[in-house]
Amino acid sequence: MNDVDVVLPCLDEARALPGVLAAMPLGFRPIVVDNGSSDGSAEVAEEHGAVVVREPRRGYGAAVQAGLTAATAEFVCFLDCDGSLDAGELPTMVALLRAGQADLVVGRRVPVTAAAWPWHARTGNALIAGLLRRRGIPVHDIAPVRAARRLDLLRLGVEDRAFGYPLELLCKAAEADWRVHELDVSYRPRAAGTKSKVSGSVLGTVRAVRDMAGVLW
């Protein structure tokens, strides 16, 4: 019986999806949330056995929340579907939840090559993570990979529907006295033909930092 759902926010990731879905661990059900793709991503996801949810409202947080709402499993993981992250690392994250060692497990990206994580994205991320640590939240990355219990996440009531979603999640988890555990995860160059909506450009990074700063303020 499946007790883990994996929410995959998606915007024009048709080229990466076959590989990402093929790497999904046994018992981990992929839920691809199509956020208005124009490249047939939703159809590719369906062809490769994923549950597809369509979320017309643009925004990372909107896609993530739509996937969380559609999930039914006890545990829910979140993973970008551009091929930069390894789904094979999700069982280790969920194991910490099962063992009662954490309430929220988040990834700390370790780039396998310098090209995997451009300087502007690393800089913006380090700035926000540093501010969080000053608030007592023990993270070094605002990474797009995390795992928690579904009902706990729903009760947390994260409201941001843009790039500030993962930051608000961490802040509210801290307010609720959740035990947050950070694990190193490998971070690879994205699949050919895909481009990050955040780190793919300086403008994307600035927008993400702006959204996250808004949450902190």
Rank of each mutant, 00 (worst) to 15 (best):
W117V: 03
W217N: 13
L90F: 09
L167G: 06
H120C: 13
R150A: 03
V185E: 05
V6G: 04
R179A: 09
I142Y: 02
K172I: 11
V106R: 04
L169A: 10
A42K: 05
V215F: 04
N35H: 12
R188A: 08
A147E: 01
G124Q: 03
V6Y: 03
S38E: 13
L151Q: 11
H120R: 11
V106G: 01
L154T: 02
S186C: 14
L90E: 01
V44P: 01
S201Q: 08
I31L: 04
D39F: 10
D5V: 01
P30E: 01
V180C: 12
K172H: 09
L151M: 12
V64W: 02
A14Q: 10
G61C: 07
V110P: 06
V112Q: 14
R161P: 07
C77A: 14
E43I: 07
D3M: 04
R207T: 12
T113S: 15
D184I: 13
G107D: 02
L132I: 03
P189M: 12
R190Y: 09
R210Q: 15
R210P: 07
A143T: 09
G157C: 09
Q65G: 08
V180I: 15
Q65N: 11
V20L: 06
M212A: 10
L104S: 01
D39N: 07
R188C: 05
G83M: 07
R149E: 07
D80L: 05
V44D: 02
P30C: 03
R190W: 09
S199K: 09
D3Q: 06
V158W: 00
D80F: 07
A42H: 03
G49E: 06
R109S: 04
R122S: 09
E159F: 10
V4E: 00
G164D: 08
R146V: 10
R150W: 00
A129Y: 05
G214H: 03
M93G: 04
R188Y: 15
P166C: 13
R207S: 13
T194L: 02
A192Q: 15
V145Y: 00
T69A: 15
S38H: 15
G67M: 05
G83L: 04
R155H: 13
L170F: 08
A143H: 05
V206A: 13
C77T: 08
I137D: 13
R146C: 11
A176D: 14
